[in-house]
Simulated assay, not measured.
Amino acid sequence: MPAVDHLVCFALYAANRTTTQAYRVLLEPWNLTYPQYIALVTLWTDGDQSVTSLGEALQLDSGTLSPMLARMEAAGYVTRARRSPDERVVTVSLTPRGTALRTELAHVPRCIAAGSGLPDMDSARELIDALHQLTEAMKDLRDHPEPVIAASRAPRTTA
């Protein structure tokens, strides 16, 4: 077994990469990428979004999000417009075609769930909760590494 198979980071990386590849196969007939799909899911569920709020929800920076939204707009799935009194705010909305995709892509979550090997919704919820906890812990480590670094240098005692 390769040494990387013993690393949590590699297991997460491999699971993420393989999951994204599975989405790629499922979304290919619609010429959609996984980030485009999650943008659509957010718009289907939460309604119109400012580009800023959509970027925050998807954890994408504007340099990634803006070109993606431009491609989605060119494909006829979304529109972008300045609708608020603040001209800097751009609102992203679904077009009728973007709304119709919700029905066409309804099988995707079921396929991912079936392919995940998780036996039921409770197991899926537990995994999602654990991954959210891990994400928050890694954000904390990213933003405040000093305490963890200091603790990892502390002498270890054995019982």
Rank of each mutant, 00 (worst) to 15 (best):
L134E: 00
D129G: 05
L118S: 05
L131N: 12
T135L: 08
E146R: 07
K139D: 06
D120I: 07
D143S: 04
S116T: 07
P145D: 13
D140F: 14
L141P: 03
A137H: 09
Q133V: 08
L134S: 06
D129P: 01
S123W: 09
D120Y: 03
D120L: 08
S116L: 06
E136F: 10
S123G: 10
L141N: 08
D129Y: 03
A114T: 15
R142Y: 02
I128R: 12
P119C: 08
E146H: 12
H144R: 11
E126Q: 04
A113M: 15
A130E: 01
Q133H: 06
I112C: 11
M121F: 03
G115P: 05
L134T: 03
M138K: 13
S116N: 04
M138L: 13
L131M: 12
G117S: 14
S123H: 12
L131K: 09
P145Q: 11
L141E: 11
L134I: 05
A114N: 15
P145Y: 09
M138V: 15
C111S: 13
H144K: 08
R142W: 01
D143E: 03
G115Y: 10
P119G: 13
A124G: 00
A114P: 13
E136C: 05
E136D: 04
I128E: 04
C111D: 13
A130D: 00
R125N: 07
E146N: 13
H144Q: 13
R125A: 07
L141R: 10
C111H: 15
I128A: 10
K139Y: 05
R125V: 09
A114H: 14
E126D: 06
R125C: 06
G115F: 14
G115E: 11
P119N: 07
S116P: 03
M121D: 01
M138S: 11
R125E: 01
C111K: 14
E136Y: 07
E136I: 09
H144L: 09
L141A: 10
E126V: 00
A124I: 01
I128L: 08
L127S: 00
L141S: 11
Q133T: 11
D143K: 00
P145R: 07
A113S: 15
I112N: 05
D140H: 15
E136T: 09
D120W: 07
R142I: 06
P145T: 12
A113F: 14
D120R: 05
A130W: 01
D143I: 02
L118T: 02
R142A: 04
G115D: 13
A137Y: 08
V148Y: 13
L131E: 06
L131V: 08
G117L: 15
C111A: 15
G117A: 14
Q133C: 12
L118A: 05
A114F: 14
E136W: 09
H132S: 08
D129A: 04
S116A: 12
R125G: 02
R125H: 09
D129C: 05
P145E: 12
D140Y: 14
M121L: 02
L127C: 03
P119Q: 10
V148P: 04
E126C: 03
A124L: 02
G117M: 15
A130C: 04
V148C: 13
